[in-house]
Design a protein around this nucleic acid. Structure first.
Length: 433
RNA sequence: GUGGACGUAGCUCAGCUGGUAGAGUCCCGGGUUGUGAUCCCGGUUGUCGUGGGUUCGAGUCCCAUCGUCCACCCCA
């Protein structure tokens, strides 16, 4: 290392962000709303490790997906094992259900939140460390559970006041019917190989279904004439999907069937859905998921149907902030201004006594000295509605002054034993004005 | 991994065809020797991202490098 590198300012890791106090209000709103809505639907929170064996993700997500091929934070630990920082939540939760013997014909409605890691180039709404709320339901063959999950998300948006999202759904069918469709599609695309752009030719080899996703306008006619997945569903999947569509209509949840909606992870089957927005630039998926009936069996557990989705907290925060930034929460209800050595020392006791008497109020004591002007400025910045003033003069007389900061009512004095009650009164009137 | 734009005070930014670094905000002090937010006055803050080159002289031009943002790819 060069010497001047030592003095260079330390930098965060690319794509890993700090959430500052000024931004935390939006996170709290989202986390609280999600927890309450999920609880209201009977979902239980669980927590799983951030790190799992690399093999788990390879098997769950699929060897030939972008996530596994080039986006995982993988390292070898001191025991020589290959471990990976989780790039998504479902695999770890499914592993936990298997490890803890929770399957045996049982049903679970679960959710989990925390950071995920993917080594991609950061851009708007996409970070290397990002946060998801991930929701899973296992043991339910559906489609009623599919509908419940979508209704739950719709309720959450309503609760958060998020309006710029719309729902797209599709069915991928069973792995068998998808394989059959895939062959037809490849056949069609090969027949038109000359008309494909470079991107699509590459996708044709890796994941042909993604050719349908091309944004190139020159490809549109070709894509529209291609065989449609929905027309090739097996009977049961078709019925499942029709049940889903009918129920969404009955619930009044608007949706669009997007036959080209193909999820990036291999484990999906039948229902897939995505809430997308036009408000966040290129990263438009706010919440997405689908059914993964084969996954648990594939991981070595007792074959159990499953469905789940993940929502990106950073993207929801961005939507919420765009709709009108939630203000930073004030830090205090009461700010105690002290002057003089004796009053400053006594202030510590007074603050503790007030915290005993008013446990639901935030009581902030001026620390680090400062003249009255400075202290009142701090009181104002703290957001406190009331200042308590304790100077040598008040202390000598056994009183403290109570001054409302948010309206023009004059300040009054209160004997120290009655101070808590006087503060409550002042705070109560502050609310009314 | 590929492409484009941008890095000047803690923060937001100005700085013309190269000629000695600016504003607002924040913070501190004063006006108000014990009363905030408003107003007035004063003050501090810079390796101009980093390294090299051209030049009498570079924040400005050139090259490299690091970083950020946006987009592609992919996805939450």
């Amino acid at each position: 290392m060069r010497e001047d590198e030592l003095t260079e300012q330390i930098q965060p890791v690319r794509g890993m962000n700090d959430v500052l106090p000024a931004e935390i209000a939006a996170w709290h709103i989202i986390e609280t709303a999600a927890r309450e809505v999920l609880t209201a639907y009977g979902y239980q929170e669980m927590r799983v490790p951030l790190v799992e064996r690399t093999e788990l993700f390879q098997r769950a997500i699929g060897e030939y997906t972008d996530v596994v091929e080039k986006e995982m934070y993988t390292f070898v630990d001191q025991g020589g094992e290959s471990l990976t920082l989780r790039p998504e939540g479902t695999a770890g939760v499914m592993r936990a259900l298997i490890s803890n013997g929770m399957l045996r014909g049982q049903r679970h409605k679960l959710w989990c939140t925390g950071p995920m890691f993917r080594h991609e180039r950061p851009q708007k709404g996409r970070y290397r460390q990002f946060h998801q709320v991930s929701v899973e339901a296992v043991g339910f063959p559906g489609p009623d559970i599919d509908i419940e999950l979508i209704a739950l998300t719709a309720r959450l948006w309503k609760r958060l006041g998020i309006e710029r999202v719309r729902l797209e759904i599709n069915s991928l069918g069973t792995p068998e019917s998808r394989r059959a469709y895939r062959e037809k599609l490849v056949e069609y695309l090969r027949a038109h190989h000359d008309e494909l752009d470079a991107d699509s030719r590459r996708r044709l080899e890796g994941n042909p279904l993604r050719v349908l996703d091309s944004k190139n306008p020159d490809m549109r006619a070709l894509i529209e004439a291609a065989p449609v997945l929905t027309d090739h569903l097996d009977g049961e999947s078709r019925e499942h999907f029709q049940g889903l569509c009918a129920a969404l209509e009955a619930l009044g949840i608007p949706f669009r069937v997007n036959p080209r909606l193909v999820r990036g992870l291999d484990y999906y089957s039948r229902t897939v859905f995505e809430w997308i927005t036009d408000a966040l630039g290129a990263q438009d998926a706010v919440c997405s998921g689908g059914r993964y009936d084969g996954l648990i069996g594939q991981l070595g557990g007792e074959s159990t149907p499953g469905i789940g989705f993940a929502m990106g907290i950073e993207r929801l925060v961005a939507l919420l902030t765009q709709a009108g930034a939630p203000a930073a929460e004030p830090t205090a209800d009461v700010y105690i201004v002290v002057s003089g050595e004796r009053a400053s020392a006594y202030g510590l006791q007074l603050a503790e006594r007030l915290r005993d008497a008013l446990p639901e109020r935030r009581v902030e004591l001026n620390l680090g000295g400062g003249n009255f002007k400075t202290q009142f400025r701090r009181a104002d910045r703290s957001g406190a509605a009331v200042a308590v003033i304790l100077g040598e003069d008040e202390l000598a007389r056994g009183v403290a002054a109570v001054k409302p900061l948010r309206h023009d009512a004059g300040q009054s004095e209160s004997p120290l034993p009655d101070l808590a009650a006087a503060i409550q009164t002042a705070l109560a009137t502050a609310v009314h004005t």
